[in-house]
């Protein structure tokens, strides 16, 4: 090309693109190897519940407010909805927990009164209180990204643990353990 070739200079900057590409490969290789976890954990674990007061959602059960979580005893806060199929799937596990003496409060998200009553009639009602959260206000405030989700709240109203998705039969002992830890 050119008649006079100057002595090739060592230019380290020329290796820079390869270095950047190496970093890219390392990053995406890591992303491929590590199993994908699409859960979005709440940032509020370890923080107290925000103030809220939700109207009652079902006949014979009171509504739910922040003050209900200051009783000194840990409780479960279960986010559910009648239109949510995994919620029906976890109903037996909630019943099992209730039978073990756990106090469970429910928050029905974006639900209708009739549908909710039918859901409780069909799947049982393990809840001490049921609040309705028509616009997902509480759901968003406690960092829940879907239904069902279950929170362990200690006796002072602090969120101690967040369980994303339905509670499977094998999860029950773990939930009971978390409740025990929360009461310490």
């Amino acid at each position: 090309m050119s008649d006079v070739t100057p002595p090739a200079k060592r230019r380290w900057s020329l290796w820079l693109p390869l270095l950047l590409f190496g970093l890219f490969v390392a990053l995406v290789a890591w992303g491929l190897i590590v199993p994908k976890d699409n859960n979005v954990p709440s940032r509020l674990v370890g923080h107290p519940l925000p103030q809220f007061a939700l109207p009652a959602g079902a006949e014979g059960k009171p509504g739910l407010a922040r003050a209900d979580f200051a009783g000194g005893k840990p409780r479960l806060l279960n986010i559910f909805a009648s239109w949510c199929i995994p919620c029906a799937a976890e109903a037996p596990q909630l019943a099992q927990l209730a039978a073990a003496g756990v106090e469970i409060d429910g928050v029905a998200v974006r639900d209708r009164k009739d549908d909710l009553a039918a859901f409780l009639a069909r799947n049982g009602n393990p809840y001490a209180r049921i609040g309705t959260d028509d616009l997902s206000t509480l759901q968003l405030a406690i960092g829940s990204s879907g239904v069902p989700e279950t929170y362990v709240i200690d006796g002072k109203g602090t969120i101690r643990y967040q369980h994303i998705g339905d509670i499977r039969p094998d999860d029950v002992p773990m939930i009971l353990k978390k409740l025990e830890e929360a009461s310490l």
């Binding site: 200079k9 230019r11 020329l14 390869l18 590409f21």
Partner: peptide, 10 residues
């Protein structure tokens, strides 16, 4: 990119 790094210097 390796080829580039080696040859671009020339």
């Amino acid at each position: 990119l390796t080829l580039f790094a080696i040859r671009a210097a020339t």
